[in-house]
Lab assay of single mutants.
Amino acid sequence: DHDVVPEDKFQETLHLKEKEGCPQAFHALLSWLLTQDSTAILDFWRVLFKDYNLERYGRLQPILDSFPKDVDLSQPRKGRKPPAVPKALVPPPRLPTKRKASEEARAAAPAALTPRGTASPGSQLKAKPPKKPESSAEQQRLPLGNGIQTMSASVQRAVAMSSGDVPGARGAVEGILIQQVFESGGSKKCIQVGGEFYTPSKFEDSGSGKNKARSSSGPKPLVRAKGAQGAAPGGGEARLGQQGSVPAPLALPSDPQLHQKNEDECAVCRDGGELICCDGCPRAFHLACLSPPLREIPSGTWRCSSCLQATVQEVQPRAEEPRPQEPPVETPLPPGLRSAGEEVRGPPGEPLAGMDTTLVYKHLPAPPSAAPLPGLDSSALHPLLCVGPEGQQNLAPGARCGVCGDGTDVLRCTHCAAAFHWRCHFPAGTSRPGTGLRCRSCSGDVTPAPVEGVLAPSPARLAPGPAKDDTASHEPALHRDDLESLLSEHTFDGILQWAIQSMARPAAPFPS
């Protein structure tokens, strides 16, 4: 592969990997390779389809078979030569091979799209000592099968071997295949498990690692696999990028399955594409389908809103127990993405979901129960707010008499603000006073009005108090039968009158 990737590009890729991570280095090298001529790309395919690569990765054979028959990708048995050289000459001794072996032994695996480039050397060096003999053996194999790289107009793939297949390693990572398949204008990513390549439709969760975000852009890794992070704060999961590491605690105790298979379609829109997988259930989501939507993949363990709600429900009964003089119970939860139609709101002032922060849900004790107040519409209280300059209440639009249902020339009671006709409430011909108009209920007259088809109010509507207090003497005590009587009149003013009279009014101040 030294004929494909020059030394300066190799060093530039290593520097970019240390600065921005393996995914960015892979993407940059792939983009550079696509700008080369067809001879360089053909050399790339020839390096990929060597015999030892085909033996190690069985899924490469179907890719090789898909090439046109007129494309010669065979390799000479006596060494490598550029395709432009007409004579089959043995190339001179390859010093770059020693360079590659020494550099890969030092860096474990470079971040390139060629056999030198995919593992994360920093994480491997940190986690190597417990498994040094086995990992050293794996390093000797890295130059042979560490990076199976493929690129063409139909298929483009980048393979990364790992030393996680050490025997006896619980939940060992089998390997990473960062794979971009450009077929019919689409893009897919796969993962390699035990020599087999699994596409998103049959993606397997190998051991402790999972394909957290099938994305090839942005600074985030394709698999949430930063070796420096180790395990999740809650004892979460091992990262795919942690090559040759000792077994780590796999999943939280509440995880239903340690080796679950995540779905390959969004649980909201039932469509495929780039998904984020939940650590607590097999569901996966688009970032845009979450509520609120996320802009980037959160670091650490992530769970959907259903799993978060289940966790909150487990903690909430203990938080609601009476604990005198104790601060509110704080339950730190990872930043969760909410699927459509589901929402768990945190306290005000918290950062938005999706940031690399930890939301704190506070379970406050329930407030003391209070008697429910009568629910009145805002339009129902409008007549009470229509007060004239002299303190006389004006008529609201649409006000109707509670007896006849007519809204023409209605009066407004100064005591309960109900609309009424003087002739309907006082049919006996009582003279109307000039000021202080009161309806039949507030004036103490319980004589029913002779209106055909309208039920008369119940005599129990009024329960006047002592006459010594004029204001308190007109406080009506309405009961269920009074409400039914008012409802039978089918008037809004009657219902409003009952609601206003049912509310307690402050006692009249004593004259000074």
Rank of each mutant, 00 (worst) to 15 (best):
L462H: 13
E314P: 12
A310R: 07
D470A: 09
F492S: 00
L275D: 07
H474K: 07
T414I: 14
E390C: 04
P317N: 14
E274W: 05
Q392R: 09
R318L: 10
L290S: 10
L337A: 06
G453N: 10
Q257S: 09
R400F: 06
P298H: 07
A428D: 06
D445M: 04
R412T: 05
I276W: 15
P324N: 14
A467H: 13
A419R: 08
E330D: 09
E326W: 13
P464E: 04
C401W: 01
S443L: 07
L411K: 08
P457D: 03
L333P: 12
P293H: 07
S441T: 03
L455P: 10
R303K: 15
R480S: 05
K261Q: 14
Q260P: 05
Q260S: 05
A399D: 07
L395Y: 11
G375Q: 13
P511A: 13
R283G: 14
A340R: 06
G407E: 02
L364S: 09
A399P: 04
P365Q: 14
A353G: 06
P317M: 11
S431Y: 13
E489R: 01
G391R: 10
L496I: 12
L287P: 08
L250A: 10
T357G: 12
L385D: 07
F510C: 02
R345I: 07
P256K: 14
K362E: 06
A267S: 09
G405E: 09
T358I: 14
D406H: 14
A396Q: 14
H286D: 13
A449T: 03
E320F: 13
G405P: 03
T491Y: 14
L486V: 03
G300I: 07
C307F: 08
V403Q: 08
D356L: 03
A319P: 09
L373A: 09
C277W: 04
S443C: 05
P367W: 15
V451R: 08
P249V: 14
C266M: 06
H286G: 13
G349C: 07
L337P: 11
L258R: 06
A477T: 09
R295M: 11
G341P: 11
C442V: 02
T331E: 10
R323V: 09
P298C: 10
S291V: 10
R505G: 05
A428H: 13
A418N: 05
L376C: 08
L478R: 07
T491R: 03
E274M: 03
R423A: 12
L381H: 08
A310M: 15
A477V: 11
A419L: 06
Q242K: 11
S443G: 08
T447A: 05
Q325V: 11
Q501F: 03
L496P: 00
S488T: 11
R303E: 06
V268M: 08
A508Q: 11
P247K: 09
E274H: 11
A456W: 08
S431A: 09
S299N: 15
P351L: 12
A310I: 14
H363A: 06
T471K: 10
L333D: 08
C442L: 02
W302P: 10
L385Y: 14
A460T: 08
L437K: 10
R438Y: 12
S305N: 14
A340H: 13
C442I: 02
K261N: 09
M503C: 11
R400H: 05
G336L: 15
H490D: 06
L337S: 14
G341W: 15
A353Q: 06
T358S: 09
E296K: 01
G346E: 10
P374S: 13
T408V: 08
R323W: 09
C439F: 03
A428F: 13
L250G: 07
F285S: 13
G391F: 15
D493Y: 10
S369N: 12
S299F: 14
G434D: 06
S443E: 09
W422C: 11
P476N: 07
L483T: 03
E263G: 10
T491V: 03
R432P: 07
A396V: 10
G341H: 07
L384E: 06
A267Y: 08
E484H: 02
D406T: 10
S488R: 03
L290Q: 14
T331Y: 11
G398L: 07
R400L: 07
I297Q: 05
I297T: 05
G300T: 05
P476K: 05
L395F: 11
L395R: 09
A366S: 07
R318A: 14
V268Y: 12
R318F: 12
S441L: 02
P317Y: 07
G375I: 05
E274V: 13
A428V: 12
P335D: 09
A319L: 11
S441K: 04
A499C: 00
A507Y: 09
V268T: 09
V315R: 13
A319T: 14
E475I: 07
P282Y: 09
A504G: 07
P322G: 11
D356S: 13
A508V: 11
Q309G: 09
S291R: 05
D356K: 03
E296T: 10
E263C: 04
L294R: 11
Q313C: 08
A417I: 13
A507I: 09
